[in-house]
Design a protein around this nucleic acid. Structure first.
Lengths: 261, 261
DNA sequence: ATCGCACAGTTTGGATACAATATTTCCGGG
DNA sequence: CCCGGAAATATTGTATCCAAACTGTGCGAT
């Protein structure tokens, strides 16, 4: 679990040099496809950080990173600077960058914001209406969730699938909301080390069932165009995730008492 | 109105080399005081853009900017990259940066987000309670607003002061909310060319009076710790600003019909 | 022994040089 | 006259270089 970072970079930049001599036009790459080294490095570092490749307060030494990724310091610096603006990394002038620590307080803050942002997304989705294709996606994801939950217990392999299902649902709502900025801001709330792939939660099966049920009601509210109800449901949903998370944090703290250093 | 940009940079970087040989420790400068050239340039460019120094889709040519600001391309690039992450600037690989256009749709999107974010701030402020000092600031700002409005009409010089008052009120609520991330996200919603200093609105006096009254009610709700009410009031308040703004845009469009280019 | 100071080494910030990519111009063919 | 393509030009992307700032260590004074 060491050269993993370089591997991430390789995957990120794969989209660059692949294929034909490249159809000249940059437009094809304008969205989605990564083009510059700096972007690849940014993606690689972001993933590495959110997936816990680095410790919370760990220094991010420019030269070491450059060496590990086999690039010069320039794209590294661009990436670190960008991640600082995104809020994933901290920066002190003349002293460099470090991984931003996410303490309990900050986590709560994030969830409060997620609550209102996702609530807004749900309301807008309900007000604007969800097109057929997106509805179909949503429904499919719901059914997939049913299948996973029907076993009465959750296997490890299922966790990833359930996360996937969750992602689809949220994306569908976000898409229906039709507010592009909302997605940008939400991304900031999701790119957080601890939860990242949201592998953490999903502990108690019963809670999970309830969560899945929320998704059903949310869908109902949206297709009925009941904006206020959709918003309320989503808020409560996120709120319950927040409580669940706080519980887990406190559990973890009990195991390993505070005041480590 | 040409060398204004350079002037902005001078002001921004003034905080750097000022004073004694600088107390060695960087900690003093860690927050607030700008330290690196890149930061100064970022601030200068942000201001220039939000104050309308550049046209909406105008290209931001690295070398020209470097020349105008008398710095190398390095800090310029850092600044542009950062502003891109912030959403003020657009970027296409190998083609450079340009001022992001804020069309009506985007403006609406921003106000929708501001509505829920400021609503959250108001609710949190009410739930947490506002300390005495902040309450005093808020009250002082309210009275200042009364004084300005008491004349029955708004002079040009008053506009700036009223904007100031508004700023203080929002800052007070934000501070009481105690959610640092909220401030970061809200900044993104405020750094928008069109409104920037919020000089635009405040057209109709009556509307302004109503707006000021909102601030009173908001305060009442907060000190009474009525979170839900505070949130609702703030939402409605922002919503009314949104409507007001949309109206103005449509007015402007009537004067200068669409399809300019 | 402790505090302060100076010096050496490390690390970052900014400028410059070079390479890669896009845009423009200009020329020949249709 | 218009269109297509190739060279020329301009602009961005990356690497390297140098200067400034910070960190740590060791020596000397108290």
């Amino acid at each position: 679990m060491e050269a993993k970072l370089a591997e991430l970079l390789a995957r990120a930049s794969a989209k660059r040099s692949r294929g034909k001599p490249r159809r000249g036009k940059a437009l094809e790459a304008a969205e989605g496809g990564v083009v510059t080294l700096a972007q690849s490095v940014t993606d690689a570092l972001r993933r590495a950080i959110t997936e816990g490749e680095f410790q919370p307060e760990e220094r991010l030494h420019e030269e070491s990173l450059a060496e590990r990724l086999k690039v010069s310091r320039t794209p590294i610096r661009a990436a670190l600077h960008g991640l600082t603006v995104e809020g994933l990394v901290e920066y002190v002038p003349n002293r460099g960058y470090s991984v931003r620590k996410v303490d309990a307080e900050r986590l709560i803050a994030i969830f409060d914001i997620r609550g209102v942002l996702e609530g807004l997304a749900a309301r807008l989705a309900a007000e604007n209406g969800m097109d057929e294709a997106t509805q179909a996606e949503y429904r499919a994801a719901l059914e997939e969730g049913d299948r996973i939950l029907s076993k009465g217990q959750l296997l490890d392999a299922d966790q990833a699938r359930f996360s996937e299902v969750n992602g689809v649902l949220h994306e569908a709502i976000l898409h229906a909301a039709g507010n592009s900025m909302l997605g940008d801001m939400m991304r900031v709330c999701f790119n957080i080390p601890i939860l990242s792939d949201r592998n953490v939660l999903w502990r108690r099966f019963e809670w999970l069932r309830r969560s899945h049920d929320d998704h059903y009601r949310l869908f109902d509210a949206i297709v009925r165009r009941e904006g206020a109800r959709a918003e309320q449901l989503m808020r409560e949903h996120v709120h319950s995730v927040k409580l669940h998370m706080r519980e887990q944090i406190e559990d973890a703290r009990r195991v390993q008492p505070p005041g480590k250093r």
